[in-house]
Design a protein around this nucleic acid. Structure first.
Lengths: 152, 152
DNA sequence: GGAATATAGTTGTCATTGACAACCTTATAG
DNA sequence: CTATAAGGTTGTCAATGACAACTATATTCC
């Protein structure tokens, strides 16, 4: 599949998109699992994603995270517990809302994430060595637009 | 995040890639779940991915599929059983190898997948209405290269 | 102010998923 | 013709997130 080199129709292109994502979804999972382990050996993949998101987006309420990542608030609650036990996340009361808890990646976690990311970037850079920066920028931009388009 | 509009460094771009994929992985899961249900109400998401892959790639051995999709052969075996019970897949002995089984999407499954895909493509086409075909082609191509680069 | 309703989190329960390992069967090497 | 490898199946287990019930705090409306 995927190697239709001719002038593709829009339908073909959308089909190709599906195909690539089918492979990608599974493949990325393995890559992420590896990354998670590098941050902390006991770090579960789902918790890692939450942690990375928090590190990027700053302290957030659980409900906000649940909404943004599109997963159940119960799952967030448990993942936050897990991360707290590992010392990678802190939960503090939201001063603006007595019901809410602010979730924040710990300084240690941010540091580990940064270290892991540098490593990972080197690897990725090797593997994507033949990519121009324009290619990279293009993929990031297109993925962003695609993500946006998939929003409910 | 993600909306760094300035001239980004390579490191920034790779970081952006991570960010987009973090969101994408979770988001796509929901979309795929919906698709799976449209093909068959009892169709599980993992089995759906297997089925779609078979429909695209033609009959394949279980071990080949496991290798290609990067998941355990035991999982493939059970997913194939599940699909067979739903009448969406057939297992036949490989004439070239007495140990192997050829997995193939049934005609009915292919038809349903095609129907669902047309629908889905309409939706996607609406949402990606402002995308040029060049954009689409670019994303497909870049994802393909990225997938390839991630191969072990 | 006070009842009704909505929202934030936590927890229990459950089905899905895939990793790992043990095992059986068939191929292939020597 | 053994010995070893490869393809599949099955048992077992932990991770994951959906759903629902429940507590506590906010907000609305009278």
């Amino acid at each position: 599949m995927a190697s239709t080199t001719g002038p593709a129709t829009r339908a073909d292109l959308l089909a190709g998109l599906d195909g690539e994502f089918t492979v990608l979804v599974r493949r990325i999972r393995r890559v992420i699992r590896q990354q998670a382990r590098e941050v902390h050996p006991d770090l579960q993949i789902a918790s890692y994603l939450l942690l990375a998101w928090l590190a990027n987006n700053g302290p957030q309420r659980g409900s906000t995270v649940a909404e943004q990542l599109g997963i159940d608030k119960g799952a967030i609650s448990r993942q936050a517990q897990h991360l707290e036990e590992l010392g990678l996340l802190s939960r503090s009361a939201d001063p603006d809302d007595g019901r809410a808890m602010l979730l924040a990646a710990s300084d240690g976690a941010v540091a580990r994430l940064a270290r892991m990311r540098d490593e990972r970037r080197r690897t990725l850079d090797e593997r994507l060595g033949d990519w121009s920066e324009a290619d990279l920028a293009s993929l990031v931009s297109l993925l962003g637009r695609y993500n946006h388009a998939l929003e409910v």
